[in-house]
Design a binder for these strands. Structure first.
Lengths: 201, 201
DNA sequence: GGGCCGCTATGACGGCTGTCATAGTAGCGC
DNA sequence: GCGCTACTATGACAGCCGTCATAGCGGCCC
């Protein structure tokens, strides 16, 4: 979780927005609260984000998508150091990030892209589009990794979508239950399917 | 989608709350809006729901959980009329409910339990618990159906969690993309895994 | 020094929110 | 009629929201 204090105030506000949206959702996250959380002056809000809350939320969603995509590369590098990366190993690493966070710090946070989708998809076309591209920039490196592991390109895209769908849903259930059971379940159940696709088409 | 006008005003308000939460989320759904949508007098709100918005949201989530659970029985009955129900067939029916709604009426609505989880899990313990039991009352009949199809009890619970996780996540992606692709993808990719578990443990 | 520009500060505005207080109505038992 | 109960009606309240207007500061450039 980078970028807490070194970056400029603008980036800090985007980061803080993502963090607060993760916890409370979009509507319950106020602009004043974002500025305060970022340690940024309130007057900077209308300066850096003349598009208002929509723009801030949009950039937070973009940031989250990029962050998730970059994490995939990190997981792959880590897996390559220990051995040969497998689809199930990648998925396990993606899920483990959540189980560790939950079991260490409580179940207070979720996925900001999911929050933006749930709250804004029906009324705000721009935010909805931002969420869609966030999912895309997250899915793409996963699919690329799967093809590198021997999964045919067509299947790789489908499996990447399945992985992220299962992860997002399990995050929801885990938060509701305050138990990481759903997360560990999906990784266990999906493992043979994922690895089975790596061998042959 | 039952219960629109015949039931009493109390049930209509719970139903309307669920419907509005599905579309706009919890925070963006006002009590006055719920009463108006239900065609119920505003004064009835504090009469039927002395616990305020929390109570109304909680009952809406309960209702949604029961509704989803009952749908499973409906799907099974339908599948039994055409032939022998299979795990993949049940999952396909559960997902098809969403693809049909989306392709017919647009991508304006999601799962109210997901919305309640995303927006309230961090701050409202009662609503979070309601969401957890809603997931439970939805998962239980799915798991029971899988055991009836020959899946060992232990696996059945895990697969039911996987099915609902994948469905919830795919709903998110489909709403963001305004495309049912993610939904059809998860049902296609999960089918062999689900049916493979029915044969032998 | 004057002018410009990036950034900050602050207060006000209208609007909507959930909640409460209070009063009022309809119906039914007696 | 009286009283009780279920339900409705309405207005007020404080609080927070996003947004805007306006002014002030600090520094760099010419």
């Amino acid at each position: 979780m980078p970028g807490s204090s070194e970056r400029g105030p603008r980036e800090r506000m985007v980061f803080s927005a993502a963090q607060l949206i993760r916890r409370d959702g979009v509507a319950a996250t106020g602009m004043r609260e974002v500025a305060e959380h970022a340690g940024a002056p309130r007057g900077s809000l209308q300066h850096y984000f003349p598009g208002g809350k929509r723009q801030l939320v949009g950039e937070a969603v973009d940031w989250a998508g990029r962050y998730a995509g970059n994490r995939v590369a990190r997981f792959l590098a880590e897996l390559s150091r220990t051995g040969t990366p497998t689809p199930s190993g990648l998925f396990a690493a993606m899920v483990r990030q959540w189980t560790e966070e939950y079991e260490a710090g409580g179940y207070g946070t979720g996925c900001p892209v999911a929050a933006a989708t749930v709250e804004c998809a029906a009324t705000d076309a721009d935010t909805r589009r931002a969420a869609a591209t966030a999912f895309a920039t997250w899915t793409a490196p996963v699919a690329a990794a799967l093809t590198d592991m021997g999964v045919p390109a067509a299947r790789a895209a489908s499996l990447a979508t399945l992985m992220i769908s299962a992860l997002e849903g399990a995050i929801l259930i885990a938060r509701a239950e305050q138990d990481s059971r759903a997360l560990t379940t999906v990784v266990a159940e999906l493992a043979p399917l994922l690895d089975g696709a790596a061998g042959a088409g």
